[in-house]
Design a protein around this nucleic acid. Structure first.
Ligand code: ZN
Ligand code: ZN
Ligand code: ZN
Ligand code: ZN
Lengths: 162, 162
DNA sequence: CCATTTCTTGCGACTGTGTCGCAAGTGGAT
DNA sequence: ATCCACTTGCGACACAGTCGCAAGAAATGG
């Protein structure tokens, strides 16, 4: 939650031209309480800057990714092939996506940092992005599944999934 | 590399109807030497089973995912928004995607298992899939980048990326 | 070996994400 | 206020993935 500097300042410092459209998009991303995809981003940005176009949204996302100000997530593509975006400032974390209820949980641990270190050292790989996404059942849904496991578990092709 | 049973047997055991199309697709996936996307899968499968349709490829992928026989990868979407597939038998591994040369490297470590255990325990999350994808520069490209860092590094908006 | 049932396929049409070239518009520096 | 490079909107496009439906093919069992 604690942003370093606002993304706006960050952009200015890098000499990136600040347009009304970019400002609107950045504000939306920064104030988001959930992970937003390009379409939602467009809808929300239009509330502030009505004329804004789809192409501009994609171009701005590309820009912010290159500048390493936002991260792109897949969230296991739980609903369609969209991508989601989040500001890169909160503590580095990974995402747990529940196939049953669709909730996205965030999780942090020192082990993740250690793992990245090991990759960098052993593979000689200069890591720019490390995205760990986990799919399965959250605590509540795992319990519920357990309880409902009284029917014939055979031939259960009805596996939830991506 | 060492497959448990062929996917075909695996399917039979689960009572899944075995069609010529599915057989062709499974053979292609199993014999693949690289990570294939849906379109390549279709092209290769057509060499064995000419009439096969795009929709069938997608439906079969969905089936194999549900049965946990294959994994879906994004590979940092290095070239377009496609997804890639691989048989779920080789040792659990993660993928390193080089933004510069495009090579995909596979990497295994016990730390990854530990990390998954910690997630399962601490978050009470029943993990079905854990996908760790890393983007950056491979050893060779990191070195090359280093050498080429003699020009003005300022205003370098030309950051490679997704 | 044929009939029956159930599942699967091909086809065609469709949705939705993401991309691009270009002419008009605008930010920011002077 | 001027100017220029950069950015935007627009329209058209490329392409991944989905769906309903009628025809076709596995498996089963007689
Ligand atoms: Zn993806
Ligand atoms: Zn859940
Ligand atoms: Zn490389
Ligand atoms: Zn792999």
């Amino acid at each position: 939650m604690l942003e370093r500097r606002s993304l706006i300042e960050e952009l200015n410092a890098k000499g990136v031209r600040l347009t009304a459209q970019r400002r609107a998009l950045i504000e939306v991303i920064q104030e988001a309480k959930e992970h937003l995809d390009a379409a939602s981003l467009l809808a929300l940005a239009r509330q502030r800057e009505p004329g804004i176009d789809r192409a501009t949204v994609y171009r701005t996302i590309e820009l912010l990714k290159k500048l390493r100000l936002i991260d792109e997530l897949d969230l296991m593509h739980l609903e369609g092939e969209k991508h989601y975006y989040e500001v890169k400032t909160r503590r580095e974390h990974l995402h747990l996506a529940c196939f049953r209820c669709g909730r996205i949980e965030e999780f942090s641990t020192a082990l993740f940092e250690q793992l990245k270190d090991e990759i960098a050292r052993q593979a000689g790989f200069a890591i720019r992005i490390a995205r760990l996404e986990v799919g399965g059942n959250c605590r509540a849904c795992a319990a519920a599944e357990e309880a409902g496991a009284n029917r014939k578990p055979e031939k259960a092709l009805a596996v939830a999934g991506h």
